[in-house]
Design a protein around this nucleic acid. Structure first.
Lengths: 337, 337
DNA sequence: TTGTAGGCGTTATCAC
DNA sequence: GTGATAACGCCTACAA
């Protein structure tokens, strides 16, 4: 007779069974909380489990059930503050629900790359995927692929029909713009995110809607790339223009760079121009001047995404969260005209 | 006879075998690049594979080989810029080498939590772990646990004997401090990171060594928590002290907060006090005044960690990278005395 | 309530 | 060089 430890193997369900004096099937039932099992039998089994320090083999389970108890994160971001914080929330919620998390970073957002990433994730048999790929393109590819794995996106594209959850970007952008209007600004620019990005579109829409509702002129938005460096150059460029007194910037990084560009060009914030950003990154409150911006709870967003995904996986009713609220944080960079 | 597609299953190695007119074992050999296989047989098999769009089942493979082709990331950070960038590098390198990545965020750094996390990762049968847990405590627990899974840490504790790789924090901190000295400062403070953090210790050591070597007085470091908010309060407090003209801050977030605290307290940077940070986060170049800081390539660090880990896993010689260089970025926040 | 048989898709081991 | 056969550890289905 050879026991598990003698053979240098991890204890299996059969070793537990032998020690508990039951069949391996009974052990399996205990593990899966099968209803019909006598309490004392269950106790014996649990005892044996703890004696042997037995832990179910996940691969074996995955093989036979075709479920991995693993969620995938498909991300196409470059370590920005927002997505990163969301990932923390996703992992947290997933682990809490007993799922492990496999992350996959997209280096390119071509249809091929996306397809390959999805295939990889499906090979890993993830039970569901959280998509953190804020580009419109990815969204379209995803919809066209008819993935058979449940997935949730953390961005709501206009006309989205898939399951998605996000903070209300349009409302946030509206609030930011309306704030500038309420300060007495009438000529308000928008430094937007890249063309393909969903948030960029939503934030731009909020900007446009607010101006239109107030019967103020709109300007063609400037397209940035989210980076502080771009903001800096934009600041230098815009300093030549003096046809505006307020600017809503699609994210804080660019806003901080922009203020730098203004500074070196002699444009004073907020004396000459009021600036409002978006995201409320941790340093936003501390730059000079401190940045008025739109706060959103990225971590909570990630948590909710997992709850939605799990409901989908389990075939339960998908919880109906309203869009996550954003809040305007008033700081020094915006002031009365 | 029932084919895979008829039964709604994914094609298996046997389906490929049937189509190619060989045994399933031969297919397996093709998949694993077994040497002794006739080229034409191999061709037939590869053909069948592509016709069926067959993809090996990872769970089955993991079950029988006890290897998952998966690396684990054990992280105990809160979404800071550095670790986040490293994770990008880790994932990249891992996927490139054909490994998937399972990430696990530690919410607490108690020995129990760490033990649980390691057990979880080992249950997932990860082939190796990259540890991004910069606390000394975690490091000790890890060493004491005699983990049977290869692992690499991204921080070098003094007297480390495990496999680890990191940028040369001490040298970077020395350079930062020596820079202040070279500007003519003689009274230089240090705003340090939390007690338990490895980088905090290294950076403090660099500070102390530089001052000692220059025969300058050292001050007891102030312990911060890495956040900009803490830096702000520290700035307000320190503004009451006027016994120093230079300060080396252990990370950029705190440095930016500190400058804010100085600002509201009437301390001018760099006129009254020169400030140097660490990390070179993207906004460091754009805050006002722009922040002199120490740059390090976090992403490359992550990549290297994976290469080291894979060598360990495969039993190859572990590549000997020297410590990653750091470079001082000179900006406005530090100036001649 | 419990046990027995069979199979999930792959690799390892032995024949041929 | 190739093919049977037997695991790997678990779960589902059916039998007792």
């Amino acid at each position: 007779m050879s026991t598990a430890s003698e053979r240098g193997r991890m204890p299996s369900i059969r070793d537990v069974a032998r020690l508990a004096g039951v069949s391996h099937q009974t052990v399996s039932r205990v593990l899966n909380d099968h209803p019909s099992i006598r309490p004392e039998t269950k106790a014996k089994v649990l005892d044996a489990i703890s004696v042997l320090d037995y832990r179910p083999n996940l691969a074996a389970r995955a093989l036979v059930t075709s479920k991995s108890n693993m969620l995938g994160i498909l991300s196409a971001t470059v370590g920005e503050f927002g997505p990163t914080s969301s990932i923390v929330g996703i992992e947290d919620a997933a682990r809490e629900a007993g799922y492990s998390v496999s992350t996959l970073n997209l280096s390119a957002t071509t249809p091929e790359a996306i397809g390959q990433a999805l295939r990889q994730l499906s090979r890993e048999q993830v039970d569901g995927i959280v998509v953190l790929a804020p580009q419109v393109r990815v969204f379209h590819v995803l919809r066209g692929m008819a993935v058979d794995i449940p997935f949730v996106t953390l961005q709501t594209a206009s006309g989205s029909d898939g399951v998605s959850h996000s903070a209300d970007q349009v409302a946030g952008a509206r609030a930011a713009t309306e704030h500038l209007i309420s300060l007495g600004h009438t000529d308000i620019l928008h430094l937007a995110g890249p063309q393909d990005w969903i948030e960029a579109e939503s934030r731009m829409r909020g900007y446009l809607e607010a101006l239109r509702d107030a019967d103020l002129p709109t300007f063609p938005p400037i397209r940035g790339d989210w980076t502080a460096d771009f903001g800096f150059f934009a600041g230098e460029e815009l300093s030549r223009r003096r046809d505006f007194t307020g600017i809503f910037v699609a994210n804080d990084q660019m806003a901080i760079g922009l203020m730098h560009g203004f500074r070196v060009s002699g444009v004073r914030v907020p004396a000459d121009v009021s600036v409002v950003g978006f995201d409320d990154i941790p340093v936003a409150a501390h730059v000079a001047p401190s940045l008025t911006t739109v706060h959103q709870d990225f971590t909570e967003l990630g948590r909710r995404a997992v709850r939605i995904l799990l409901a989908q996986i389990r075939g339960e009713a998908v919880p109906e969260f309203g869009p996550l609220q954003t809040t305007l944080r008033l700081r020094e960079s915006s002031a009365m005209r």
